[in-house]
Design a binder for these strands. Structure first.
Lengths: 273, 273
DNA sequence: CAAATAGTGTCTCTAAGACAATATCAC
DNA sequence: GTGATATTGTCTTAGAGACACTATTTG
């Protein structure tokens, strides 16, 4: 009879085949372009960070930032490390959206990836090209259901436009996965991962759990409403939005100004009781 | 300049350290013990499958069923394979609850685990002891918040009672993780995984997404209500439950009977439009 | 003053919760 | 009939959505 000590001394991890494990990050932020009309407020757009791959495989394709899990770190630490390397910004929040583990998803071999949604706040992240990246840019996101039931994911940056087509497949527990009909020349299975990330992001935005993360500490209620409307791709009455959000924010004494119309009171997120 | 073909030929996965990857399954079912009173209906209890470890490490401790990811399969297939090996039942549904990747969570070395919630329906799963299991049993589940804010997880089977204590830590996006204050002699970090699974299960039960999975094809509305009440650990008025569920079920022509009280109409789950 | 956003008041409709009343079976 | 569950009806209240109105600023 063997005791636990000697069992552990004898245990050889190399005896079993192991995959490589990566973390991929779907990093969102909101643009805030000034408008051309001095009276009109800016309309935010949902942006997603992609890097242009500098090495094989998928060299020259756009892909999600990510990298290999190192010994001694958790998968969350790995995701944070990768996003900081690419943007020099510590994301305010991170949410796992699952392990993508199809055996042939990476031509290099058996490489599985845990994907994360990350929100970068108002501190205007730069994009820094890392080791493996020839370029890094923020892409404007559009994700809409077509009449034939497929979902079109369009990512646009200047004259580059990537258009992937996916089909939603509902499975148990209200979870939905996407199958890729056209990758839109995104690398690996990243179109599928981005679709899953957008679905997860919208789920959270619906109950206000994360919309604050996109804004600075103080904000107007209209800005907050714009954040939610941009993420969910809907529009609603401002009176109704204000009623729903009322319990989650508190007033400050400050106001906006200088905008050709009535100033707005700034609000803060109310801390939990 | 190298092309993609020759890059892939040269790529050596062994050059990078890799963890072992496992899938652990938190498998739930409902008991349906006959009551002692011929008039009274049975009250279901939420049950969770644990195996008693037959080998090191944690030999003799109770643990979640699970096993190593094999080459050529996805993590979902791995989880299904493991649960079928233990119960001889194909689960009706499977939901990932995240990758548990603390570097020291397994004394054998760098082993990370994707955990899944699984629901086994009314087909009365057996428990079969697999290779590594000395025993396998269904444990009654209790998971409640104490006055001091900690959560007590109690698992009971006959004279065995495991009691773990955890603390909920809210993080971004409304996700909550649990830290283990007392593992209750559950193996590895499995107390933490079970707490996360129960939280996920309750989230799904709230909007009826999976309560049908616990029942056979035809069921009474009272049985359905009991399922939700058992999982959520609440009680509600039957009139109100019936109104809420009305759009999701459809009548059959059959009735229960022989129970010392008014028979109940059997219903089916309504298929999506 | 005009254009634009900020903010409030109110109506309707739906859904949830509480409670009461009736129906039907096996013994 | 009695004890149990099954099923329906109704009252109240909270919240969502729609719409109309007022307030305030800068050029």
């Amino acid at each position: 009879m063997q005791d636990e000590q000697s069992f552990l001394r004898q245990y050889r991890q190399d005896d079993y085949p192991r995959p490589s494990v990566t973390a991929d990050v779907v990093a969102f932020t909101l643009s805030s372009e000034a408008s051309d009309n001095y009276r009109r407020n800016a309309q935010p757009k949902l942006l997603l960070l992609l890097i242009k791959r500098g090495g094989h495989p998928f060299k020259g394709c756009w892909a999600l930032p990510g990298g290999f899990l190192n010994p001694g770190e958790t998968i969350e630490q790995c995701a944070l490390r990768e996003i900081e390397e690419e943007t020099a910004v510590k994301p305010v929040s991170l949410m796992s959206i699952g392990l993508f583990s199809e055996p042939d998803r990476d031509p290099r071999g058996w490489i599985i990836s845990n994907a994360f949604v990350s929100v970068l706040g108002a501190e205007k992240p730069e994009q820094r090209s890392g080791d493996d990246a020839a370029d890094a840019q923020w892409f404007e996101v559009s994700f809409e259901r077509a009449e034939d039931g497929t979902e079109a994911l369009t990512l646009t940056h200047e004259d580059v436009s990537l258009r992937a087509v996916l089909k939603e497949e509902k499975s148990a527990f209200g979870i939905s996965a996407f199958s890729v009909l056209d990758s839109g020349s995104l690398a690996f299975d990243h179109a599928k991962i981005i679709a899953a990330a957008l679905t997860a992001l919208r789920g959270c935005a619906r109950d206000f759990e994360m919309i604050f993360d996109f804004l600075p500490e103080k904000f107007t209620l209209t800005e907050l409403q714009n954040v939610q409307e941009t993420i969910l791709n809907v529009s609603m009455q401002s009176a109704n939005f204000r009623r729903k959000i009322a319990g989650l924010v508190e007033e400050t004494e400050e106001y906006t100004g200088g905008a050709g119309h009535r100033p707005a009171k700034l609000y803060k997120r109310k801390q939990e009781a």
